[in-house]
Nucleic acid binder design. Sequence first.
DNA 1: GCAACAAATAACTATTTGGTTACAAGCTAT
DNA 2: ATAGCTTGTAACCAAATAGTTATTTGTTGC
Lengths: 222, 222
Amino acid sequence: MDGSGEKKPAKRRSQDRVLQRDPERTRAAILEAATREFAENGMGGARVDAIAERAGTNKRMLYHYFGDKEQLYLHVLEEAYVGIRTAERELHIGDRSPEEGIAELALFTWRYFHKHPEFLSLLGTENLHRARWLRQSVRLKELHSHLIVELTEVLDRGKKEGVFIEAADPLSVYLTIASLGYFYISNQYTLSTIFGRDLADPGNLDAWERHIVHVTLASIKA
Amino acid sequence: MDGSGEKKPAKRRSQDRVLQRDPERTRAAILEAATREFAENGMGGARVDAIAERAGTNKRMLYHYFGDKEQLYLHVLEEAYVGIRTAERELHIGDRSPEEGIAELALFTWRYFHKHPEFLSLLGTENLHRARWLRQSVRLKELHSHLIVELTEVLDRGKKEGVFIEAADPLSVYLTIASLGYFYISNQYTLSTIFGRDLADPGNLDAWERHIVHVTLASIKA
DNA sequence: GCAACAAATAACTATTTGGTTACAAGCTAT
DNA sequence: ATAGCTTGTAACCAAATAGTTATTTGTTGC
């Protein structure tokens, strides 16, 4: 950039570059860059150099903070799960009627998936590898139970009130909601191509949102 | 392997190897090996050397028959779509009652997904790349319309008979069926891990099969 | 039977990639 | 102010990787 022509190796001039140190910022920048790179290219396709460049830093820092590519990937994955489960906790689906609670969970899940396609990509990548890295995670044992507990309560109340069928099962209900959201968002590109309809069109997105709520409730209504 | 210590380049001895030529077999072996490699590792993670080795041949043949890695991948993807759509054609979902027809399509789709997880992996990979290769395909324009046409007929008959709601839409019904199957199979590894339940267990698989039929019909029944 | 072509092999190459090393410079406690 | 640790940079390296070349050997039409 400037005209100084140094030749000695690893010799750096810093007069013209105000070097601000900020470990937290650098670490966060690497994590965010890695999230995008892994989400866009998968584990096998992600490039360490690309992550460093996206983060505005270099590979040395990446290895310094995260060890290696695999550990960085695991951090990204864990952070993604923490993100959705944390947002989910603020829902309080038990505050209104059972039907409204289920509808609220369905809407939240759909909208979260739509807003965070990178989370879905990461799940896809992780499943491609049969949860090889997720299984090593020690942070994620407790994270998911809250959802099932709260969902169980709402369903039980609905059954007692006679609005839900007895067979309604919390895990099945969640999987139903997640299925309908995940598939539409994550497979929108091939689906739009083969069926000749743009699934990303706002009208179609709105229709699918209503569809998810309808299907979920129809499947458990007494 | 044998004790001859040749040094001249590209000198090959063949006396001890009965060399059978079979272009069709070689081509098919490459396609099958590539299907597995791409399904297991994605586009970015798949290795050309690995495909050649799996096919029991070498890279030269792979480039000879398919041009390059990307074209080979596209062939694999096209072949996978041809596979499911061909099997689908033999269903004749219009032969029985509308409810039975829909149930039959749901069962078929679920069982096909379960039997061909490599197809789901390929879809996942292709969507990761936003259908970059599928969109270049010229073979696949007509392939998918048959499904929608037949489904439309069954739904229309159901509406006329008063067993399906008027709002039942063919694409939505198919996406519902596909969603419930795709998500369960392709995300079974992360789901089993985070919820501490083995989704691949035969009992759970059977339950989900029944669940898909139940949800699909419940969502369109009048 | 043999010329021309298709199928097959293995070694080779240029580039990319994950990971490391040597070094410079900011930060902080004493 | 300065020693020791942390944050940062760029050059380097060995292994891996997509794609190619030189060569050999079946196969087939005449």
